[in-house]
């Protein structure tokens, strides 16, 4: 049952991706990428990553879509027809894909509990979370306590990105509105 659910969601995900590649209207692309994010969130929850699924639903389908739509509002909603041939990019993608599929042959199958990844450090966190921190949600205890440095660095990344956006878009509005409307098409 878990496999079937997983398989259906994966196929939906692939179908939506093909849609994103094919559609030329950027508005449709943004809506499809929202659907893609919701599918990805459902898939992540099916894979027991409840925290990640929740974040993906809120971030990918919520905030990203709003940001993309507001960017579309400021730019153009129609993609220009392609000027170059798509043979080279397609060949590049297929080559990369072939190399990666070759790589997956040695990877453990989905859902296997005895893989190296699931044997050592993951188990360690699961065993030690309750005695050491008394926090039942292991994801929270690893995120905020064991790997607190990571999360601090990542909060700093978000802070930096916020400053970057402000520097790019906020600065000119304060100088005056004279040169605002002129150069925008």
């Amino acid at each position: 049952m878990e496999f079937l659910f997983n398989l259906i969601l994966l196929l939906f995900l692939a179908a939506v991706t093909i849609g994103i590649i094919g559609v030329r209207n950027l508005f449709a692309v943004v809506v499809l990428s929202g659907a893609y994010s919701f599918l990805m969130a459902t898939l992540l929850i099916a894979m027991d990553a409840v925290d990640v699924g929740m974040t993906e639903a809120a971030v990918g389908a919520g905030v990203s879509t709003v940001l993309l739509l507001s960017a579309l509002h400021l730019t153009n909603t129609e993609e220009a027809p392609a000027k170059h041939s798509n043979v080279l990019p397609m060949a590049l993608a297929l080559l990369t894909g072939a190399a990666l599929v070759y790589g997956t042959w040695d990877l453990p199958r989905y859902g296997d509990p005895d893989t190296p990844m699931n044997s050592y450090v993951g188990d360690e966190y699961l065993e030690r979370s309750i005695p050491e921190t008394t926090i039942p949600n292991v994801v929270t205890s690893v995120l905020a306590s064991y790997r607190g440095y990571d999360t601090l660095g990542e909060t700093a990344v978000i802070f930096t990105a916020g400053i970057g956006v402000l520097m790019l878009l906020y600065g000119r509005r304060r100088k005056g509105d004279d040169d605002e409307g002129g150069d925008r098409s």
């Binding site: 905030v63 709003v66 940001l67 507001s70 960017a71 400021l74 921190t133 926090i135 929270t140 205890s141 905020a144 306590s145 607190g148 999360t151 909060t155 978000i158 802070f159 990105a161 916020g162 956006v165 402000l166 878009l169 906020y170």
Partner: peptide, 24 residues
């Protein structure tokens, strides 16, 4: 500690997202 740290994360994430939306 986790409570305080998460409060910091909440503050930064929510206000950054809102600020980015404001500028856009």
């Amino acid at each position: 500690g986790v409570l305080l740290v998460e409060a910091g994360v909440l503050l930064t994430v929510s206000s950054t997202m809102l600020l980015i939306f404001y500028t856009f």
